[in-house]
Simulated assay, not measured.
Amino acid sequence: MPHRTHASSVAARLWRRLRAEWTELVRVQKSDRPWQLPAAAAIASGGPLLAAAWHGNLALGLAASLGGLVFLYLPRAAGARGLARVAGCAIGMVASHAIGTASQVSPAATVAATGLVAFAAALLCRWRGVGPPAALFFVMAVSIAAQTPVHPGRALLNTELLAAGCLLALAVAVAYRLLLPHDIAATPARPAPAGGVVILAESLVIGSFVALSLAVAQAAGLERPYWVPVSCMAVLQGASLRAAWTRQLQRIAGTGVGMLLFGALAAAPLTAWHVAAAVTGLTFVVETLVVRHYGAAVVFITPLAVLLAEAAQLPGQVAGHSVHDLMQARLLDTVIGCLFGLAGAAVLHTSALRSLVGRWVRRDAR
């Protein structure tokens, strides 16, 4: 009898835990984000592809479309001063892309470059209080650039195109502020910033795990694993270990569903106009959903990111099996990146790290 009572108690606790986990996974947040903001982001990212489709050369618009994402660094709480942040992030995006392109000389250089950009982006974003997407797009820029084979004569052109996309994003941000000057939310209360040594230590952890995730993916022989460090960084940006755990579950599940959506898109004949329209529409949907439910947004983030990285080669891959292989590869990338991101978050949010940093500070103060 006591044994049955104990088993019932364990089952009840497990059921409550599973219910709490499910509630956390499906929780939908409220949002005061106006529809004009996702629309402006869609213009900044989709505009270059629409122009490229008009000129019949989709490849020229892909790097510029990636640069257009820098519009999302426009803070709603900073008024016109937020434009300076967009300009600064644009410089960072261009530098990240250039570093990634230069790192194609060897796999070791690619790992080092990706880890360096992740470290520097995390350090600067935490130091300056840059909120989401924070360091994520810088890692995306360096990772896609590093993993996309490019003719040496065209390497500089791609970076120039990304810079042009960043300029378009800045112009869209200026227009957005002029047309919607009332859309300036109250500045949210921020916790006291961590000390410089703590920020440095946390950024080192982030950069190390992002680099390690890519190194393991390369050692495993994965082809173009650009989504591994991106997924790792996305999980590492969780505000707590609990948030990182929830985010990695949402990202894996969302990527699985998102790959089915990408498969449906790739199964149809994809012209340059179709790709441009898809990127524009997906950007609008992502920026509408991401503040409400991260997992739902990932369903649309997945085909968006794959189109930005693969669209130039996609017409030759639509012969069924190649698209299927691509879907499997990106899902495997996500799982590996999320696992390393969760491991890094466990280190990042443990009290042992802060205790170690505290000992360094006290030792240096003597």
Results as ranks from 00 to 15, higher is better:
residue 203 S to F: 01
residue 37 L to T: 15
residue 332 L to R: 13
residue 184 I to G: 11
residue 138 F to R: 00
residue 175 A to I: 14
residue 325 D to S: 15
residue 320 G to D: 14
residue 80 A to M: 12
residue 106 S to Q: 04
residue 47 G to K: 02
residue 270 L to G: 03
residue 170 L to E: 00
residue 350 T to S: 15
residue 113 A to G: 08
residue 151 H to N: 13
residue 104 Q to D: 02
residue 318 V to D: 09
residue 256 G to K: 10
residue 114 T to M: 12
residue 297 A to W: 12
residue 22 W to L: 12
residue 49 L to M: 06
residue 231 S to W: 02
residue 203 S to G: 02
residue 101 T to R: 10
residue 262 F to K: 12
residue 311 A to F: 00
residue 279 V to S: 02
residue 119 F to I: 01
residue 124 L to F: 09
residue 60 L to V: 00
residue 323 V to Y: 11
residue 14 L to H: 06
residue 96 S to C: 09
residue 109 A to L: 07
residue 309 A to H: 12
residue 135 A to E: 07
residue 39 A to W: 12
residue 116 L to N: 06
residue 3 H to G: 03
residue 302 T to N: 11
residue 54 W to Y: 07
residue 333 D to F: 07
residue 278 A to G: 09
residue 93 M to P: 03
residue 135 A to Y: 03
residue 317 Q to Y: 04
residue 146 A to N: 07
residue 349 H to V: 07
residue 200 L to M: 13
residue 72 L to E: 05
residue 288 T to H: 13
residue 345 A to T: 09
residue 136 L to D: 01
residue 115 G to D: 04
residue 86 V to C: 03
residue 88 G to P: 09
residue 34 P to L: 05
residue 190 R to H: 14
residue 135 A to Q: 10
residue 176 Y to K: 02
residue 16 R to Y: 01
residue 327 M to W: 08
residue 272 A to D: 05
residue 185 A to P: 05
residue 71 F to W: 07
residue 168 L to N: 02
residue 366 R to W: 13
residue 160 E to G: 09
residue 158 N to P: 01
residue 29 Q to R: 14
residue 63 A to K: 00
residue 231 S to A: 14
residue 174 V to S: 04
residue 19 R to A: 14
residue 342 L to W: 06
residue 72 L to H: 02
residue 178 L to R: 15
residue 276 A to F: 00
